[in-house]
Design a protein around this nucleic acid. Structure first.
Lengths: 181, 181
DNA sequence: GGATACATGTAAGATGTTACATGATTGT
DNA sequence: ACAATCATGTAACATCTTACATGTATCC
């Protein structure tokens, strides 16, 4: 199973919602305050070309002058996107790529049932809790020969993960409530 | 004033604490669960070479076989590092590079008085609050044609910034208390 | 007709990843 | 002697940034 960059999955997900041009995608990134992808043409147009080269998206040819090229996902693109959505969170993603995980979760509601999102959150919470435990162990074992601000920065890191755990718990409950109704 | 990458500042800061070799620095990154820099030699050795080329660090030559090369900051390196530590947080950093900001704050205690850290936190908090306000405005103005998980992911993003605000407040108080004593 | 927004792209350069290569030191 | 670990490095590749180039459509 090939891996693609976070930007590529973001583009694939947005095209899954509706066909769009490179310019449309750029505007989404520059107008949206979160999901921090660059709106620079030097990132987006090459990424679209890569996705097209891999057969995941297809777009009209820019016949004649420079006109709108609208891209849409291919069948293979839809499959790859679904496979990505169904990947369970890993410890490595929890620690090193939290934004990428949130991107996956955000898109999940477009294509998978609430039960899948709930399962995702359960694993997400478990892995995050394990990481917090590792952080606490590290803190205990280390002869904190660290400055005051160093200790405070460490606490900020722990607080981030605790907030994610609390969020996952709340989100799970919210999805379960809706699922019942 | 030249800009350097986050990894380069991290290396500079660690060398500021004590002279170390590339291998030492790699081990710090692989053994420390936070401050997520790559411990790959393909990142660290070229970064050390760049810092040396800019005159910010100096290290022994690897005479003979492959032996330990210990690097230490130069006077210019110390100056550059201090200048970096004194930069106030910007909105862009709060939004796009929170880890880079935390790195700066963590190192700050090594070289600057608590009053500088308190000033840093004040600006950090103000800019983060302004960003949360912008996120809320966006949420209100947007015809949330977004999925349930999309909304939840957005909430997770807001929660992260709120946690940072609360952390900054606490950290400021903690530093002020110590400052009095 | 000129300014502005729309729209797509390229080129050069910086940085980082992965995988490999090389040799020294230490423990058994 | 052999393995494991210490230690430094390179090469190929992918991705992204910044800056530039080009042309269209629309508004005044």
């Amino acid at each position: 199973m090939p891996r693609h960059s976070a930007l590529e999955y973001a583009l694939l997900g947005l095209l899954q919602q509706e066909p769009r041009s490179g310019y449309d995608l750029r505007r989404i990134f520059s107008a949206t305050p979160f999901a921090h992808f660059s709106d620079s043409p030097g990132a987006i147009y090459p990424a679209l070309r890569r996705l097209a080269a891999r057969g995941l998206i297809a777009g009209g040819v820019a016949s004649g002058g420079r006109r709108r090229r609208t891209f849409r996902p291919t069948t293979a693109g839809g499959r790859a996107w679904l496979a990505w959505l169904q990947l369970p969170p890993t410890r490595a993603e929890v620690v090193w790529e939290p934004d990428s995980l949130m991107l996956r979760f955000a898109f999940m509601g477009d294509a998978l049932p609430a039960s899948a999102a709930v399962r995702f959150l359960a694993v997400y919470q478990k892995e995050t809790e394990a990481h917090v435990a590792a952080l606490r162990r590290f803190q205990r074992d280390t002869q904190a020969n660290v400055s005051r601000t160093g200790r405070l920065a460490f606490q900020a890191g722990v607080a981030m993960f605790l907030t994610r755990i609390a969020w996952a718990r709340r989100a799970r409950k919210a999805l379960a409530r809706k699922g019942e109704a």
